[in-house]
Nucleic acid binder design. Structure first.
Lengths: 340, 340
DNA sequence: CTGTTAGCGCATTCAG
DNA sequence: CTGAATGCGCTAACAG
């Protein structure tokens, strides 16, 4: 019933509009656009002209419903926190000389930190909106997907996708040992998100270092933070308001560490004189925190670039199930000092 | 074990798989999923169970092809540079308590800085993959779109969408005046991307301040940078290798300013002793640059949040064509000093 | 209450 | 060389 006439409805130019304007069928337009041969040069030129004139651009939606290739790589994150953002820069840089565009989907903003957000996102982007996906801090060991997958800071597990991570264990040990070597004996730990494998590994590194030094870990010395300031707040408060307060804390990530500095200041504690703090990640804000944060640097840009390389190899059919681990490095700045 | 049975072809579970497994028609499944009423409780329960079991999630692609609402807000950027990333944090935070998910599309990574990338992206995201879009540093005054639009750091023009920007003119004047008040008379300018309106405004601010101070601007004092280090390099080099070198430079953005510091160091120039530098934006790297960069701060997180507010109001049918301008502020750090 | 039918915009057969 | 028909996953009418 709906006899169409012109762009009309949505305002978007469709392949049909182009076909009508050029006086050919949609199939012809499709062929021209996709560079298929078997089209008269004159026709092709005329169609291209109309395409330009009308500013036609194929709809990713319709295309991906029909085809299996979109030249778009998806990056799936839970949220846009500094860690993911740094990674994104590396990913974007590495992709800038390729034919691929990037689409980043934040799957947990509207539903909270729902464990398993990656499967939800993967399903929603479904069929083939994206040709491959890079998962940032997934909470599942082996998300189900039918497209090439690389996980950054993964949930380890067998049979999972290719993974890229930093050396969390060494980093955590280095951080804790730094504190111990400064002379601290009451060293606490502000844990990361429980659903992150890397958070557990870092806690293990902390515990190992403490154990090796023969130092005790009272239960109140370990509390849980998160990767948002809000989440970190209660853990930070618990740590500092405990009966016996640690003189140094290793926080599982910089966001928590910075929140801890804030809470310490709120309580009149000086950092590092009264409390030494080490973070993890080395996000941009770490260096400009006050005091500048001692932290364990993860090569985030490089990790992002490595993920892109792996994904592209997979897309080219090479069987890359590499599990790459990049080194971490302690960066000593102003938030750590010997105990008073 | 992971999900078995059914999907076959793509590996993705579709509504058809669910229908078959539940022994009902796809229409029924659709109704259940969308909470339409007129479905027997028993049937509904059975379907839901199958949905859970199979881990079904509707495809954003197919849904958006058919419907006009996806609850996804698009953020369109040319690339993931620090400016956009900061904005993204504000946007993400502001969206975290809403029903909306975020999808960020970088439209210029695979094709270079193509003027008009926003129309291309808008077209590709087409019909209704997204309910509304936030444009970051668009290069067009009035992109055509049939969905609510807000532009951050826009190309001004009449009839355009709602816009959010920082006070570029005042900021640029403040930066230049700061340099002049320090005693500099040879003040240069490293321009921003030519396709950005804000870059022109900043240049105007610089020229006005110079004019008001009665200072000359030799042609070699103004060169062009960009928002990537590579782009900024040639402009920086030209500025420093000129016959008569400025003793101070106002760079149109922090990325350029930081690159300028690098180039200056390369030539054995000390900053700020031999060359004072002011940037613009106050991205995280500005504070941790060496020396710490004096810059004009734009409230990027707030600008992102403001964009979200505006978009949501538009989505609710309120007629918000506000043009919001947030204040900028000079932040003096270590990269500026009186001339030697 | 539930199943059938008809597209959304596009690319791909398969006949002209 | 070109055009009409078909289907991708899904939902809105409309039948049954």
């Amino acid at each position: 019933m709906s006899i169409t006439a012109g762009p009309a409805k949505t305002g978007r130019t469709t392949i049909t509009d182009v076909a009508r304007a050029a006086g050919v069928s949609v199939a012809t337009v499709s062929k021209v656009i996709n560079g298929r041969d078997g089209i008269a040069v004159a026709t092709s030129a005329r169609v291209m002209q109309v395409v330009d004139k009308l500013g036609y651009e194929r709809s990713l939606v319709a295309t991906s419903l029909r085809q299996s290739k979109t030249n778009v790589i998806g990056v799936l994150v839970a949220e846009f926190e500094p860690f993911a953002l740094q990674l994104l820069q590396g990913i974007s840089d590495a992709l800038s000389d390729t034919q691929y565009d990037v689409l980043v989907y934040a799957g947990a903003v509207s539903v909270g930190n729902h464990r398993g957000w990656e499967n939800r996102s993967l399903s929603r982007l479904g069929g083939t909106l994206i040709d491959a996906a890079i998962l940032v801090t997934p909470t599942l060991a082996s998300p189900d997907a039918s497209i090439p997958l690389v996980a950054i800071d993964p949930h380890t597990g067998s049979g999972g996708p290719a993974t890229i991570d930093g050396d969390n264990l060494s980093g955590a040990r280095a951080a804790t040992e730094h504190l111990i070597s400064l002379g601290h004996t009451r060293v606490g730990h502000l844990r990361g998100r429980d659903d992150l494998e890397s958070a557990h590994v870092r806690e293990r590194g902390y515990r190992e270092a403490m154990h090796d030094a023969g130092l005790p870990i009272p239960p109140t010395f370990v509390t849980t933070g998160g990767y948002r300031a809000d989440d970190a707040n209660s853990g930070a408060v618990a740590l500092l308001d405990a009966e016996v307060r640690p003189t140094a804390v290793f926080a599982a990530n910089d966001v928590s560490a910075i929140e801890l500095i804030r809470v310490a200041h709120e309580r009149g504690l000086r950092v590092p004189e009264d409390l030494s703090i080490v973070g993890f990640d080395d996000i941009p804000d770490a260096a400009s925190a006050s005091p500048a944060l001692t932290t364990v640097r993860q090569p985030l840009r490089e990790m992002g670039a490595a993920a892109v390389e792996a994904i592209i190899e997979m897309l080219q059919g090479k069987d890359t199930s590499a599990h790459m681990r990049l080194p971490t490095r302690l960066v000593v700045r102003a938030s750590t000092a010997p105990p008073a």
